[in-house]
């Protein structure tokens, strides 16, 4: 489900089925890393869209948690709130290697995707590249659901 009014109605009605949130985690930088942070945001956003389409009936994609270095460590508050509200699974989707080992700290599963600089790549190439990456993600999401049950 997407983060909009129409889908929100469904989420509230069908909470026993829509039990998972995906939070895109993206760094924000205005200086030297400006372009890189913008590219990561775009890339992670496209992947999140794809996962939303694939798992519409079980996953809600939230707005991205975007951070500067000083606010990065507040990300766990989002998973805490989501779990308090009854969501069983929280997955963070990120291309920032800093999170790779942070599952405990974040209180959620981390799905790390190595960043691909999309640059000014042609639309059609971009699309097939995203589709490729996303297909691998699909299985990882299913695995995470299973792990969480054990």
């Amino acid at each position: 489900m997407n983060w909009n009014g129409k889908d929100a109605v469904l989420v509230e009605q069908q909470k026993q089925y829509i039990d998972t949130v995906i939070i895109p985690l993206v760094p924000v930088d205005f200086g030297a890393e400006f372009k890189r942070s913008a590219e990561q945001y775009e890339f992670v956003g496209l992947l999140a869209d794809f996962l939303e389409r694939q798992f519409k009936g079980r996953i809600v994609v939230t707005p991205p948690y975007a951070y500067v270095p000083e606010t990065a460590d507040k990300a766990p508050l989002w998973s805490e709130r989501a779990q308090l509200a009854g969501f069983k699974h929280v997955f963070f989707l990120t291309s920032d290697p800093a999170w790779r080992q942070s599952e405990d700290e974040l209180q959620g599963a981390v799905i790390f995707v190595p960043p691909v600089p999309l640059g000014d790549m042609e639309e059609s190439i971009k699309r097939s590249l995203i589709a490729d990456q996303a297909k691998q993600l699909v299985n990882r999401v299913v695995d995470k659901w299973q792990e969480n049950f054990e």
Binding site: Q14, Y17, I18, R53, F55, K56, G57, R58
Partner: peptide
């Protein structure tokens, strides 16, 4: 598109 809640 699954007729339950729309997954693939």
């Amino acid at each position: 598109i699954c007729k339950h809640l729309g997954c693939t």
